[in-house]
């Protein structure tokens, strides 16, 4: 059981977390534009998250908090 939360407002939509996720459950939300003007990263299936924190490790903007 793991939980990942995104501080969506400060996401720059670079997608480095998306590439880092070994479970392929992250994506940039093309239907949303945050206040910085980017498509923020979102998780598609929280139940598959293993809490490895690879996403947070590669995130340049400390957007991601991981709980396990």
């Amino acid at each position: 059981m793991a939980k990942v939360t995104f501080n969506e407002d400060i996401c720059k939509g670079c997608g480095l977390c998306v590439d880092a996720c070994p479970k392929h459950i992250l994506m940039l939300d093309k239907n949303k534009i945050n206040r910085k003007g980017h498509n923020p990263a979102v998780m598609t299936d929280q139940s598959k998250c293993i809490g490895c924190a690879f996403c947070a490790t590669m995130c340049p903007d400390c957007v991601i908090t991981v709980e396990k």
Partner: peptide, 21 residues
């Protein structure tokens, strides 16, 4: 559940001006 990864305390809340990625 315990936090295993979060923004370090010794970074301010100021948003980084760096380019995406």
């Amino acid at each position: 559940m315990a936090i295993v990864f979060q923004k370090p305390a010794s970074l301010t809340d100021k948003e980084l001006h760096y380019c995406p990625g």
